[in-house]
Write a protein that binds this DNA or RNA. Structure first.
Lengths: 252, 252
DNA sequence: GACAAAGAAAACATCAGATGTTTACTATCA
DNA sequence: TGATAGTAAACATCTGATGTTTTCTTTGTC
């Protein structure tokens, strides 16, 4: 359900997927869920054919999709194995979406949040410098939708679109590749804290502050408002998840 | 040549690639080089078969590899088209390597450097907090290799490994997914400035400073030394490339 | 002339089977 | 014990047939 929401945010749905895509998803989900140790062999083509009830070409194409995402590695004559997690295209939309299909791991969520804290204040600052009027309008609309949201889901979607709009307004295509990190962290956070995000009375004012600063082209203010917002989120997660920053350095 | 060096840094070589991988590379390179407008159709399967002299299954698997990386989108009955650049997995190793095969675009290089400036000071700071003795040893070795390098290539490789070691020492797997950004920016920078990087007399001392700070678990010092190093690089690029930060906001 | 329906063509999807190559394992023999 | 030859397993490639979806064209009617 959260996986579907992720795809909604990325507009990745649309057409009915072919068999190769379905097999790819199924395998991808299992890999992401940790059903295979790193470096272990998966079933050979024949077994996959019978297991999924499809022909060899479908299985081979599904495997190629996963190879493209860095999850699998094929060695002729030897077999197909799961690559080290460090080699995965972790920021691939599908890979992140598949992560939404499993119970969020506190460690991974913390890493996502650390990256958000690194990325988004900068993005907000750059957005204040380079955003076009249309991009500012997108941010404004998302902020407005947050204010007006009547359901949790509407609120979360508007929240995500707010952050996406800010990121895009920074006009850096490498940065945009990190969009998925934001969605993924946001969705996992909602799931983990298990409370109505609208109850957070600091959220809306801080979003408003970010918007105002970007409208005013005040780079510093935009950065620090965003920083404060994320610090607030971080703190809530620390409270909700016992081992959220367990492995983090002692000082903090 | 620079593309090969990128692969060396990522240890992605090894086995002889099959036909599907070769076709994937060839197509991928052309797409990255901008031979196709966003959203345009590529040749159909039959044409690709005759052009590359391979069978349909090879072409289909090559296309699946590129679909996995977000470069292509296949619509049954309609054709296969190149996706918007914003949808590419820009951080995929192959995609970044293919970028090394073309003339570096100042705009793109600047975006990579902006991301490096955002990422690496933080990474150095985290590394100072969480690096294991082995990870510190890796950084030390890379620094040592930089000092001892007798050729430009050796120096560049050691430099890249230094930054990689720092990034990895931050112990954040999402961050590690950004490794390619560093390599890509580094290689493009060398190519663009077109001078012996060892001639930069600030480079070695600053790397040394980063190492010392991480060894001393001094997060702040590690961050700022890295920040200074990247600012220095940024400045050199501005000098070497006329339109390096042309599209950047006026204030800076 | 406009519009809707039928038909044809183009392009991808899937299946089946044959053959080749590489790798890994095993049995044999000196 | 160690090298070698043989065998099996697994992926790679080719070919050809058939199905489905989309798009375009043609046709016919109002």
């Amino acid at each position: 359900m959260s996986e579907l929401l992720y795809y909604d945010l990325k507009d990745s749905a649309g057409v009915a997927p072919g068999l190769a895509t379905q097999v790819c998803r199924e395998l991808g989900r299992r890999i992401v869920a940790g059903h295979f140790p790193e470096g272990s062999l998966i079933d050979d083509e024949n077994k996959l054919c019978t297991r999924f009830g499809v022909s060899k070409s479908v299985v081979r194409e599904a495997i190629k999709l996963l190879v493209g995402k860095g999850l699998l590695e094929v060695r002729r004559g030897s077999g197909t194995r799961v690559r080290r997690r460090a080699s995965w295209n972790l920021l691939d939309d599908d890979v992140l979406a598949w992560h939404q299909g499993i119970e969020p791991k506190p460690e991974f969520l913390r890493q996502l949040m650390d990256v958000r804290q690194m990325v988004e204040p900068n993005a907000a600052g750059w957005a204040a410098q380079t955003a076009t009027p249309e991009q500012i309008e997108d941010i404004r609309k998302a902020q407005h939708d947050m204010e007006q949201a009547t359901s949790i889901q509407d609120f979360v979607v508007a929240d995500a679109l707010f952050h996406r709009s800010v990121l895009r307004a920074a006009n850096n295509e490498v940065l945009i590749a990190l969009e998925g990190v934001i969605f993924s962290a946001l969705l996992s956070s909602i799931k983990v804290t298990n409370s109505d995000p609208r109850k957070n009375e600091r959220s809306l004012p801080l979003h408003r502050q970010v918007l105002k600063a970007i409208e005013a082209h005040d780079s510093e203010a935009a950065s620090s408002a965003m920083r404060e917002h994320l610090a607030d989120t971080y703190e809530r997660l620390s409270g909700a998840l016992p081992d959220f920053n367990a492995t983090r350095g002692a000082s903090e």
